[in-house]
Amino acid sequence: MYKSILVPVDILEEELTRNALKHAVYLAKLADAKVYLLHVLPISSAIINSYALGYPELKDRASIKAEEDLKALVDSLDLPKERVSYSIAFGSPRDEIAVSAESIEADLIVIGSRRPGITTHLLGSNASGIVRYANTSVLVVR
């Protein structure tokens, strides 16, 4: 049924990531699908200013840390390594997830989410934004 499953992960949110991955790995095993992990780092004004001033190493440090954590995450999954890959993007999580889903032709996006609270009601959440704007099916795991 699924050939390509995108799992947006936040390496700082271990429980959300673990829950989403548990479902994605289960579905990937059933369907012999590939799993793509995506971690999106926000672009802050500090990073933009550091580039403007000639300090690109700030972005590199964030990327290096994210890549180390993603490699460890990939190694922990109970899937053949050729069926798992990862990438890092900079920008809005909702937008980068949509772009990535399209580029890998994802059949499904599996994302972890917390129980909604007042802040997500007022500001929205990444999961709700993805559900609203994705062009493919989205499984929200709590």
Rank of each mutant, 00 (worst) to 15 (best):
G54T: 04
D75A: 13
L79G: 05
D95E: 11
E13G: 06
H23A: 06
L27H: 11
V141I: 15
H121F: 04
Y55Q: 07
K71S: 13
L16I: 14
A98Q: 01
L21C: 12
D95N: 06
N135M: 10
A20N: 09
Y51H: 03
N19L: 15
T17P: 13
I64P: 01
S92P: 03
D75T: 13
L38T: 02
K65N: 01
G124D: 03
T119C: 08
R18E: 02
A72T: 04
S137R: 06
A52Y: 09
S100H: 14
H39G: 08
R114D: 09
E14H: 02
S44E: 13
E57F: 07
A52M: 10
N49G: 07
I104C: 02
A31K: 09
K34W: 05
T17Y: 14
L30D: 11
N135Q: 15
K59A: 13
K34N: 12
Y133L: 07
A72K: 14
R94A: 13
V35W: 04
E102R: 03
V99F: 15
D32Y: 03
N126V: 03
L41G: 01
A52R: 12
R61W: 09
L27Y: 12
D78T: 05
H121R: 15
N135S: 08
V74M: 12
A62Q: 15
E67G: 01
L108W: 01
S76V: 12
R94Q: 14
A101K: 00
R114S: 10
S103K: 11
L79H: 10
T120S: 14
R132Q: 15
A24C: 12
E96L: 04
I104L: 01
L21I: 12
E57Q: 14
I111D: 02
L122F: 07
D69C: 04
S63C: 09
Y51R: 03
L139K: 07
R83T: 11
E57T: 06
E15K: 11
D75N: 15
K81R: 05
K65H: 06
L53T: 07
I43D: 02
L53C: 04
S125W: 02
S128V: 04
V84M: 09
P56Y: 12
A72N: 11
A24P: 13
L123T: 05
V140T: 09
V99S: 14
A98F: 00
L122N: 03
K22T: 03
E68A: 05
I109K: 06
I43V: 11
S44K: 10
G124M: 09
V138T: 07
S63P: 00
I43G: 00
H121T: 13
Y55H: 08
V35M: 03
